[in-house]
């Protein structure tokens, strides 16, 4: 068994190397390690980016941040866990668009107003895709509208699972275009939508840019428009947003940091400052941009305002679909 234990020790050293610069902090907070609950499975986009941010932030805080994954039930399992935690700043968590939506959908009793928002991290804007392999092969949004108006329910659109952020985005797109599409929800991750569209199993798709970029560059998928508030920087800056085209469909999936309810203001500010520095760090920025997301720091107040604006859009969609469970 000796070799086994030896190898375990080697493993452990590597693991400890990840986040253990234990330089003692001078100020009172933080004076012990912080736990961060990520409500997603290891390896998800939100997990990888947040781990990178947390690693950097821990350098500024002077305490290691231990990441704990609590995935499940559309991130609400992780929110539940965080909601119960002591608001002493030693348990924080990350959130996504589901935080705003889950209450309206009746999945989870709390929303963004019930937590102590700390800092906004980055945007992941939904984009509208068209397949080049399916029998329709649309070139532009106008073409989609013209065809779909003439043939209701004939055009299929792949989306992420019902109730998810990009599914809401897809509903917004369908409503804004004023057409009747055949929405085909896929199980979970954005990659499935890309597969369905690239393989020609669906004519259109709404998903994240990061998952689709490779196929767009290879010409297997056409990038028709951004269903968010801004265009993507870089190579695909020429692709317009739907709003610019005159269709009112805009949402942003995001990742941000929050704490349990009623966390003291000083702690929130201290954390927020550390996360701001982390997000603006060139190395972290490069990681997030390399995954095709848009880093943007927002302090708690701006973050709350952003959530409230997003909420209005979601409510309209859910109301129209008769899926609004609580106000």
């Amino acid at each position: 068994m000796k070799k086994l234990w030896l190898s375990i020790v080697v493993f452990a050293f590597c693991v400890c190397g990840v986040g253990a610069d234990c330089a003692a902090a001078a100020a009172e907070y933080p004076n012990k390690p912080i736990t961060c609950i990520i409500p997603m499975e290891p390896g998800a986009d939100g997990d990888i980016n947040m781990r990178t941010i947390m690693k950097k932030a821990s350098e500024f805080l002077g305490q290691p941040i231990m990441v704990v994954n609590k995935p499940g039930a559309g991130q609400t399992m992780g929110y539940r866990e965080l909601y119960k935690a002591k608001p002493d700043g030693y348990t924080i968590g990350t959130c996504a668009a589901s935080l705003i939506m889950a209450k309206m959908q009746g999945i989870y009793p709390q929303n963004h107003r019930d937590f102590s928002l700390v800092a906004f991290g980055y945007h992941a804007l939904p984009i509208v895709l068209a397949s080049t392999a399916s029998k329709h092969s649309f070139q532009s949004i106008e073409e989609v509208v013209a065809f779909a108006k003439a043939n209701p329910n004939a055009v299929s659109m792949a989306t992420t699972s019902v109730g998810g952020a990009y599914w809401i985005a897809a509903q917004m797109v369908e409503m804004a275009l004023k057409v009747d599409l055949n929405l085909i929800p896929q199980e979970g991750s954005a990659g499935f939508v890309v597969t369905a569209v690239a393989g020609g199993h669906a004519d259109l798709g709404v998903t994240s840019f990061s998952a689709a970029k490779g196929q767009i560059e290879a010409g297997k998928i056409r990038f028709l428009g951004v269903a968010g508030p801004q265009r993507y920087p870089g190579k695909f800056n020429h692709v317009k947003t739907l709003k610019e085209m005159g269709y009112d469909a805009s949402m942003s999936s995001f990742a941000a940091v929050m704490g349990p309810p009623r966390m003291p203001k000083e702690i929130v500010n201290k954390l927020s400052a550390a996360i701001e520095k982390a997000i603006k760090d060139p190395e972290v920025e490069r990681t997030i941009v390399s995954r095709n997301m848009i880093p943007e720091y927002m302090p708690p107040e701006a973050f709350l305002k952003f959530c409230n604006e997003q909420e209005v859009g979601y409510r309209t969609v859910l109301e129209k679909l008769n899926m609004l469970k609580t106000k």
Partner: peptide
């Protein structure tokens, strides 16, 4: 394809992207 179909390859993809290698066609 640059599309991960299972969890371990999703992490591997993240690792590649982190080093500015974009798998895909």
């Amino acid at each position: 394809l640059g599309i991960p179909f299972n969890a371990p390859s999703a992490v591997l993809l993240a690792g590649l992207l982190m080093h500015n290698v974009e798998p895909g066609p």
